[in-house]
Amino acid sequence: MAILKIKKRNNILPGFGLSLGFTLFYLSLIVLIPLSASFIKSAELSFPDFWAAVSSPRVVASYKLTFGASFVGALINAIFGLLTAWVLTRYTFPGKKIVDALVDLPFALPTAVAGIALTAVYAKNGWIGSLLEPLGINVAFTPLGVVVALTFIGLPFVVRTVQPALEDLEAETEEAAASLGANRWQTFHKIILPAIWPALLTGFALAFARAIGEYGSVIFIAGNMPMVSEITPLIIITKLEQYDYAGATAVAVVMLVISFQLLLIINALQWWMSNRLTTSK
């Protein structure tokens, strides 16, 4: 590949050809070729068939639920994740180290386990569900359950992107703001929030992107009723089980295109974030 040709600038270290060659080989074998298979498979459908597969009412309802619930989940995580990051960087309280370590639980806990645990807790007879039922709130087996599961799996993203940004803030800027007469809320609103904004947005985007593709934790708590609480990944599985490979692939391609765009947005956000950090120093 010509574009990957090394710039010969007196680099004396060995192993470039071997390491890059293996990287490209393995990347193509595991990721690129199989992914392109899905695009080629969807090309077997004529455009009207493709359009019919990805725009049937049941599929459209699943997009609305997947993207809506992912957005709400990511929003909850943005607010409470910022608060969690704030508390973990600025305050001390007993058990803080354990709380800090447990924030990463959704990364480490298998999604199926998270799914059945959340269902058990939020079902009508569960620890939290039984408290919410008298209030007329049903979580498990409703779209609200989808939001709960997607909030769970996205929880670490905002905390872990905002935490380093908060730690990087210089105490001097806050002191300057205070000495100029700003109260704490003004300092937070006008000084701190603008500084951590890129990190917060990145965390939000990461949580959102992760939530869109999530399957394991959602299917247990969602109830999976067509048109009501059926997420898009489940539609793909249902189509596969009915041997509708082309239909499953068509919906998958729609999701892939959206995911890739999100990946590009996240990359741009991260570039913005690191730029912000280096220029502020």
Binding site: M1, I3, L4, K5, I6, K7, R9, N11, L13, F16, L20, T23, L24, L27, V31, L32, L35, S38, A209, I212, G213, E214, Y215, G216, P233, L234, I236, I237, A252, M255, L256, S259, F260, L262, L263, L264, N267
Partner: peptide
């Protein structure tokens, strides 16, 4: 350890599986 063209593209491609739904 090396400089080459298309490096940031390669890093993005390595990240791809994070962006793909497990079902897909």
């Amino acid at each position: 350890k090396f400089e080459f063209k298309g490096k940031s593209m390669l890093i993005t491609l390595i990240d791809l599986p994070f962006a793909v739904s497990p079902v897909i």
